[in-house]
């Protein structure tokens, strides 16, 4: 079999291993805990949960929310 197959699949396996390494890092560094807080991490005091942050221009050329 051509060595190219092995090279391609070597890179494929390397990608998979990089994913596994990332998963191990995530578990070791507490990224798989406190999911509720994680889901809310994109909100802050300026744009809290419950704030709608996009809208059509109200009239032609006017700003939305």
């Amino acid at each position: 079999m051509s060595p190219v197959y092995w090279l391609v699949w070597g890179v494929v396996v390397a990608f998979a291993l990089s994913a596994v390494s990332g998963l191990v890092w995530a578990i070791q560094h507490g990224q798989m805990e406190r999911f509720a807080a994680g889901a809310r991490s994109i909100f802050d005091a300026e744009e809290p949960v419950g704030t709608v942050t996009d809208g059509f221009p109200r009239r032609e050329g006017r700003s939305g929310p």
Partner: peptide, 16 residues
Amino acid sequence: IPKVIGAPIHSYHLSL
């Protein structure tokens, strides 16, 4: 989607 509607995603477990 969460930013625009102002609500966290339904299941963070599923997203990961």
